[in-house]
Structure formats: C-alpha cells, structure tokens
C-alpha cells in the first residue's frame, strides 16, 4: 500500500497535513500525538516581524463551525527560526512554513528568509486571510495581482511553493490558474469563508473585527466543490481542506481532486484528529483494495 504523495516537489510519506493556524507551531501538539506519523505540519502564518493580531473577541462558534478573526498573530520569522524550528527538526515529518506580507516586497523578503532556514521543506503563501484589510485582500481576489505577487515570491525561493487560495471569489478556477501562471508548484484549497455573527441582545458583532473566517464541517461541501473546480482548471497538485473531521471526509476531497488533505478546525476539537484521520484513510484503502492512494486522486465518477 503506497500512501506517499508528491506535492509540487514536496515528498510526503502520507497525504495528511495540518492546516496553518490550527496547529500552532507544531511542537505544542507533541504531547497529544506522534508528530512523526503525519505527512507534514503547516505552521501558523508567519510575517517578517511579530504581529499582534486583532483585539479580543476573536472566535465565535456557529452551527457545525466557527468564526475566527485572530488577525494573523504570530511570533515573526526570526523567532520561529530560532525558537521553534530546532525543536521541529527532531521529527521525521515535513515542515511547511505558511507566510504572508503586507506588500509584494514583504512577501519576497519573507519567502527568502524562510527558504534560507534549515528545516523548512516548503512554503505556503497566504494570500487569502479574510481578517486583513482591503488592500491586502486584493492579492487573493484579483487574479492579476495574485499572479504578480506569486511571480515575485517564486523568484525568491527554490522550495516548493504552495499558494493558499481564498474561497471568497467568483471563480476559484481563475484564481487557481493565476497562481499557477505565477509559478505555484501546488495549491491549498480553501482558506476560510468570510462570515459574521451578531449578538441580537447587544446588537454588536460577535467578533471585534466584525467579520471573520468560517471554518469547520459547515464549509466542507463548498470546499469540496472548489477543490473539484480548481483541479479541473490546473495540473499542479492540490492540498484539499475545509472542515475535514474524518477519514471519510478526507477521501471525499481526494476523489474531488486533492492529492493531499489538511486537517484544520478538527485539531481544536480533538488534538489527535490528524492521526485518526490518517488511520481511517488507511482503513478505506485496505477495504477498497487500493495499492496506491495516488490512483484515487480525482477519482470521482460523474
């Protein structure tokens, strides 16, 4: 049984990775699961300088999901390389560094800094966080700007470059093509969907940022549809994500066209969710007598 997959040059022992922003810097989860078992860890989105994020009032639970407006709080690339990477290097798994900037120049600088670090195996470019302000959002919603910023980051790194797409667009296929034209080796599909919730007694928004990103099983059918559409539009591998709670959910994404899957909000519900999803994928593979998981990718019959 082969579970290994290749994500734009990044060799994973199995297709289960953790989603950025839901797994801290990875090391926090070592007490809950054997990090050596999972395909890759995608760390919390990193910026050149530490970021404070949004004021309190950052999460709110909704039916089968949750809204968050953390605002990309992070310790910064230097602290990550100095304090977290040495610990992460002890594990036999791949490290995907998620990063973002406020300008094209910052994206380039961040990509270069992370590429020079020992122990980062791939970069995931966040152009799609819904919790940042208007100018920034354009990188993830305007195909011309997407291509421009990806092209610039592409030149700054030799590592596999994964671009994480925003679902808050009219055509995910256009965005996928733009990222690939800019030089993306793979795509992560999808980031959270913009949403909001209001306290009807106080008439105030539940989140200080007013809007936030919706995640969890509530968004899974949308994510599956977007993976399906993106996979039809481009030939690079896709990491599918959006509300995966079980191995069955993961298989659904793979059948829609994902070569790997990322576990996000489920990590909050069960810190060991990623290994449980992996075990359940293995059960499915065995039960269906599949020799190589790659043969399942895009295997939807329609």
């Amino acid at each position: 049984m082969n579970l290994s997959v290749n994500i734009g040059g990044l060799e994973l022992k199995n297709p289960v990775v953790t989603a950025s922003g839901t797994f801290g810097y990875g090391v926090e989860y070592a007490e809950f699961l054997d990090l050596n078992l999972i395909g890759a860890i995608t760390v919390k989105g990193l910026s050149l300088r530490p970021a404070k994020g949004n004021p309190p009032g950052r999460v709110w639970e909704t039916p089968c999901g949750m809204l968050n407006a953390i605002g990309l709080q992070n310790i910064g690339i230097d602290a990550f390389i100095k304090d977290k990477l040495p610990e992460l290097r002890k594990y036999d798994t791949k490290i995907i560094a998620n990063f973002f900037g406020d300008t094209i120049e910052e994206y380039v600088e961040a990509a270069a800094a992370l590429s020079a670090a020992d122990g980062v195996h791939a970069l995931e470019m966040n152009i799609s966080c819904p919790n940042k302000q208007a100018g920034w959002i354009a990188f993830g919603t305007d195909p011309a700007l997407t291509e421009k910023v990806v092209t610039a980051a592409r030149r700054a790194t030799k590592l596999p470059l994964i671009v994480k797409l925003s679902p808050n667009v009219t055509s995910i296929a256009d965005m996928a093509r733009a990222a690939v034209n800019g030089g993306a080796d793979a795509l992560s599909v999808i980031n959270t969907i913009t949403g909001m919730a209001i306290d009807i007694e106080t008439r105030r928004p539940r989140l200080s940022n007013i809007v936030g990103g919706l995640s969890g099983p509530a968004i899974r059918p949308i994510a599956v549809r977007m993976v399906f559409q993106a996979a039809k539009a481009v030939t690079v591998p896709i990491i599918g994500m959006g509300g995966i709670m079980t191995g069955g959910d993961a298989i659904e994404f793979i059948l829609a066209g994902a070569s790997a899957v990322a576990i996000g909000t489920a990590n909050f519900v069960n810190p060991a969710a990623s290994v449980e999803v992996l075990d359940s994928i293995k059960d499915y593979i065995v039960r269906n007598r599949i020799d190589d998981i790659n043969t399942l990718v895009g295997g939807i019959i329609c």
Partner: peptide, 12 residues
C-alpha cells in the same frame, strides 16, 4: 475559546 491549549489564539 476553541482549542483550550493555547494554539488557536482565540481567547485573547
């Protein structure tokens, strides 16, 4: 709060 273990950064 979502995670309870300091990783989601939601309960600031």
């Amino acid at each position: 709060m979502a995670c309870g273990i300091g990783t989601c950064l939601g309960c600031a």
